[in-house]
Amino acid sequence: MTQEKMTLVRLQEILAAYGAKSDRWPADERAAAVRFLERNRQAQKFIAEAQKLDTSLDKLPEPAPMGAALYARFLRIPKKTDNITFLFQWLLSPKRLIPQAAGLVLAVFLGVMAGLNGALEEDGDLSAYIFGTETRTAADWDLEGVDQ
C-alpha cells in the first residue's frame, strides 16, 4: 500500500521514531516523505534535529565478527534423530522398559497372591482342590461324555 499523502505532523512522527535516514522510514510512506521534505523548509529543520541523535547512535561500533571458534561452538549440537526413530527408541529404551517390566512382574505376582488369598478365605479347600490331585476321583474332573 502506498500512502501518497504526507503532512508535516506525520513527517515529524516519522523522524521522531525512525531517525533522519530515509532508508529506515516505513516503506509505504518513504517516497511521499522524501518528496515532502524536498519542498518544505520547516521539515528540513526537523531532520537536522533527528540527525544529531543518529550521529550519536552511529558512534556505537559494529560488534566484532564471529571467529571460527565461535562458529565451532555454535555447531556443537546434540545428536538428534527424526521423530519416528525417536519414538521407537523412546518406546524400546531400557530406561523405559525396565520399570515397565518390573511393574508387570509385580502386578502378576500381586494378582496371583490376591487370588490365592481370596480363594482361601472363601473356601479353605480350594488350594487342596487345585493342588491335591491324589484325592480326586474321575467324577471330580467332570468327564461326562468322554470315553473312558
Partner: peptide, 17 residues
C-alpha cells in the same frame, strides 16, 4: 546437520549483533 550449519553461518552474525 549441514542445513543447521548453513543457518548458523548465514544468520549467526546478524543475531549476535
Amino acid at each position: 546437520e549441514r542445513a543447521y550449519a548453513m543457518l548458523v553461518q548465514r544468520h549467526g552474525y546478524k543475531y549476535l549483533a
